[in-house]
Design a binder for these strands. Structure first.
Lengths: 197, 197, 197, 197
DNA sequence: AATGAATGAGGGTTCATTCAT
DNA sequence: TATGAATGAACCCTCATTCAT
């Protein structure tokens, strides 16, 4: 009653985040979300148009932010291919500071319109540029299956960096090391492939 | 009614697998599972003690089989470090032939006692030997964070091999290539690490 | 905010009419009525004391107007029995120009105090004079059941004239024809009845 | 518990009929219907698939019965034009013995797939043959507006016969009288129309 | 006058499980 | 073993109205 309206919205977002993370979108109980935020289910609908609206409100700002950031990163990457580590760091930093929202999006979104977001991101956003980079470096068309798998591994690397609970310094060091790992593996693989034929 | 009891159990297992894969453990409807298996919900309880029992029955035989197989593989591996690719192939082959059960375990088990199985497998089963192998190769204690991440990437590699829909021949070729990738990366990484200090 | 209060009231009445006509009194949503009128539900209560008050305000002025008009018509009718068609036309004209309000009253008033208005009108207002006219013409007491049915048919005739979407000229012509129909039927019926006994 | 299942279904149908008649389909409360039938709302869904299924089960058998009866009546009518009164009596008798279901269909079906049934019946089933009979008798095309209105009046006549609470003997007598009324009116009207031109 | 957050009860429906038959 | 009716709580959501601001 005496709380300013912003706090209510914030309380609902926070409570919703908790429940969605704990139970997933479908199993999370709106009643519980409301109770934890200190209001009735009826009151909820003065702030959000429904359960999915609450979920979207948690996740969409992050998606827009990520999109914006990613576009800058990718355009830099195309201009200067040596900026890899730095750009990765930018992306990871963003993701870490939106850790929860990423998890919502990737692991708790079943039943929402974001359900397939992870695969969408991998296939539509990352894969095309990945395949292109591989092809360019190899000087030939690289087996898409191989690219797919390595891309998924890369994605998993990011996941671990994001959710591993590392400090920024640790992340920086790990990325450097993992870049060494990936690039060495990558070059050796291409050599082998080219030898084959 | 006239079906031998085995068929009923099999029908329930099959119908349950379908629903659990499609909707996850919690959201899958026991009613639907029973209807698709051609019996009533009441009859179900003559064959299984409940929803989770059905799930366990789908997943536990595979776990035991996998455990048994993995122990043979790992003891071979420790005896002869050159058997890597072959052993991986054995594991993957097993996993591919139990694709559905793996997916149940890893992606559809929320709400059951198997909920944390994937992390359990990684941390309790794979990680110790992984860290040991890394340490042995490096001749020093490798940063566990690094091992964790690379292990997760490896695990993701397996996932893709299992779920990518590849033929056995494709899998064999991919494993060979990915082994080249991983090992080259791994060696280069260790070199770098050793240089550092 | 800057609108003169009359406009707000008018907007609410108009929006309410729309919703009541579309969904009936009970199913119409006050929220929607207010939203369409451009204000909040809270503000609504500064103009009307509640949902039913809004409904009454739509319907009562018409009822009073109709009562007044009908009294003039009926007193003329009793003075001069030949004015039939003209008087019918007066009534119908009034009804057509308050078409929506009539519909509200007859078809959308469930849940309000006007719920039984149609039957009230027929039984309390029309029936007594109808029975009297029949009795007078017949020179004897006509079976009330017969009068009831013919009265209801007459009422339905009016409904169709009102809601049929006819021009005034068409209405005039139709009334003339229908009067022929009714009166011929009526006289023949009375002849038969009198022959019986 | 001890009631045979038929009684439960019957109890739900009866309780549903009461509530639908009293409040209309949308406003009737399933909870109340169930309570009055002596079971919980959960149990309800073992007997009907939902609220509308209950409504349909009340109304559809009557519709099919009516359709069947009406087809016999109309084919007789076309074979022998003098059977009018008898056939009307057959129809009305059927309707009276399904009085409640007719009222459900005509007055309480808003929100169901039967919502427009009354107008459908009038326009699609009755109107075409009505217009044809008028045209045939008149020897020319009669103004559809006139036919519409008289048809609606006829329909209202039936409604009153059905809902007036008359005995079968009274109905028989009233139909005879009303047929005199209608036919006399009809013939006189046609004469007038033909004179006009 | 107007806002909009809050109430609290009610809506139809689904659920895993139980149990008399 | 099988049936299917019953339970009772939970689900998300909508409602007319109130009231502090």
């Amino acid at each position: 009653m005496l709380r300013p309206p912003q706090n209510i919205r914030a309380a609902l977002l926070s409570s919703g985040k908790d429940q969605f993370l704990a139970y997933g979108f479908e199993k999370a109980s709106l009643r519980t979300i409301c109770k934890n935020a200190g209001l009735t289910t009826g009151a909820f609908y003065n702030h959000f148009s429904g359960k999915e609206d609450l979920f979207s409100s948690l996740v969409e700002p992050m998606i827009h932010g990520f999109r914006k950031m990613y576009q800058e990163v990718i355009s830099q990457e195309l201009a200067d291919l040596t900026t890899g580590v730095e750009n990765e760091l930018t992306s990871i930093t963003y993701a870490i500071s939106h850790k929860d929202e990423f998890r919502l999006l990737f692991e708790c979104s079943k039943g929402t319109k974001f359900e397939g977001f992870k695969e969408y991101l991998i296939q539509e956003v990352f894969y095309p540029s990945y395949q292109e980079v591989f092809d360019r470096y190899a000087g030939r068309h690289v087996d898409p299956a191989l690219v797919q798998i390595i891309l998924h591994m890369k994605f998993e690397e990011y996941m671990e960096l994001i959710y591993g609970g590392y400090t920024m310094n640790e992340v920086k060091k790990l990325i450097t090391q993992l870049t060494v790992f990936s690039e060495a593996g990558f070059h050796r693989l291409l050599e082998d492939i080219n030898k084959e034929n």
